[in-house]
Nucleic acid binder design. Structure first.
Lengths: 202, 202
DNA sequence: CTAGTAACAAAAAACATATTTTGTCATTTG
DNA sequence: CAAATGACAAAATATGTTTTTTGTTACTAG
C-alpha cells in the first residue's frame, strides 16, 4: 500500500510508517531503526520529530483516538436531549473501540497497553471523555432531565456501570461473545442508567 | 472421601509451604524444588500429591476461594428477600476480593492471573458465583420481587453493571481510591440495579 | 535556519551455553 | 501397600558475551 510520498509532512510520514510496521510485526519487533529505514532516512532524524520511541508509539495511538474525540465533541455540541447525548457518546466510544479491536488489533493493543501502564495518551483521552460526559450531565441537571444533585456521584455511576464496555482491557476479553449480544447488553445497561439518572435516586 | 485427619495431612502441608513461599518470594521466584526443600521432602514427592506445578498453584488459589464460596451458599440458603440476598452476595464477594488484595496481595495475584489466563480454578469459581446469583434471581422472579421475564438478560445485567467491582483485574487497579469511596459507589450501583430489576424493564 | 546525516556511548536485546527446574519412574523404606 | 526417595530426560531459566538499539551531538547540505 503506497502512502502519499513527499507531499505529507515528515512527522506524519514517520507516524504512518511506524503504524504500518507495528501492524505487520507487532510492537515487540518494532525498532526506531527499522521504521527509519522504511521511511528512507537515518534513525537519528526520527528523533528530530519524536523525542523518544515511547513518544512515537504514543503518537500512533493518539492518531486514531483523535477522530473519536472530535466525534464526541460534535455529539456534545448537538441539540439533542441530555440523555440521548449521553447514550450516543458512550455507544460511540464503545463501538469505536470494538471496531478498532476487530479491524486493527495491533494498534488497539497499543491503546490497551497505554491504559494499563497509565501513559499520558490514555489518561488524557479518558479525561476528555469524562469531561464530555460531565458537561452533558451538567446540561441534563440544568434542564431538569436529571434531578440528581451530586454531579460527582452521577459521573462515577455512569463510568462504573459502563466499565465493562469502555475499559480497553475489558473489551479485549470477549472473543466468544458476538458484537450483537454485547451491543444488546450495553443498551440494557444504558436503559437502566437512564431510569436511574431520570429518577434522581442517588 | 474424607481422610482421617492426622496432625496435618501431607497435601495440606505442601499447600501451606507453597502459599508461604509465594507470599515471601512471589510466584516468579517460586519453584517446586524450593517448596519441597522447605517442607523437608524430595520434590518428587510433591508430585505424588499434585500432578503439576500449575495444579499446585491453582490449589493454593482454590484454598482461599473455598470459604468465600461456602459463605455464598449460606447467604443463598438464608430466608431474606431476594434482592437483599443478591446484594449481600455481590457485596460479600467484592469485599472478600478487596480484603485479600490488601492483606495478601501475592495470593490475590495468583487469582488475577488465573482469571486472565482463564484457568479452571477461576472459571469454576465464576460459574459458582453465577449459579448462586441465578438461583437468587429465579427465586426473586418466582416470588414476584423481580417482574423480569428473561433470566439470562437479568443475569447479564447483574454482572455487566458489577463488572468493575467483581473482576479481579479491575479491582487491582484502584490504588488511589479509598475503600469507603468504592464501597459507596458499589452501593449506588446496586441501588440502581434493584430499581431496574424491581421495575421489570428489561 | 531547516532538514538531514554520521558517529558515538549507554542501554537493551539476542545469542550461545551452563545450570536449574519440571515431571517421570524404578526403587527403597517402614 | 502407602509414603517417600534419587536418578533421570526434557524443558525452562540463569548467566556471561556479543550485537543491536536507543538517544545525543557535532556536523553537512540546501
Amino acid at each position: 500500500m503506497a502512502k502519499a510520498p513527499s507531499s505529507e509532512p515528515t512527522d506524519a510520514r514517520i507516524l504512518e510508517f511506524a503504524a504500518e510496521h507495528i501492524r505487520r510485526h507487532g510492537l515487540e519487533r518494532t525498532t526506531v531503526v527499522a521504521i527509519a529505514r522504511e521511511a528512507a532516512m537515518s534513525h537519528g532524524n526520527v528523533y528530530r520529530y519524536f523525542p523518544s520511541k515511547e513518544a512515537l508509539v504514543d503518537a500512533v495511538t493518539q492518531q486514531w483516538l483523535k477522530p473519536i474525540e472530535s466525534g464526541l465533541r460534535d455529539i456534545c455540541d448537538g441539540p439533542d436531549p441530555a440523555f440521548d447525548k449521553l447514550e450516543r457518546i458512550l455507544s460511540a466510544v464503545h463501538r469505536a473501540y470494538r471496531n478498532k479491536l476487530e479491524t486493527d488489533p495491533a494498534i488497539f493493543d497499543l491503546f490497551i497497553d497505554a491504559s494499563i501502564r497509565g501513559r499520558g495518551v490514555a489518561r488524557k483521552h479518558r479525561l476528555k471523555l469524562q469531561s464530555e460526559v460531565r458537561s452533558v450531565l451538567e446540561d441534563g441537571m440544568a434542564s431538569g432531565a436529571f434531578p440528581a444533585h451530586d454531579i460527582r456521584r452521577a459521573l462515577a455511576l455512569v463510568f462504573d456501570v459502563s466499565h465493562r464496555f469502555l475499559s480497553p482491557p475489558a473489551i479485549r476479553v470477549d472473543g466468544e461473545v458476538t458484537r450483537a449480544q454485547i451491543d444488546g447488553r450495553f443498551e440494557r445497561v444504558l436503559r437502566a442508567l437512564r431510569r436511574t439518572l431520570g429518577s434522581g435516586v442517588l
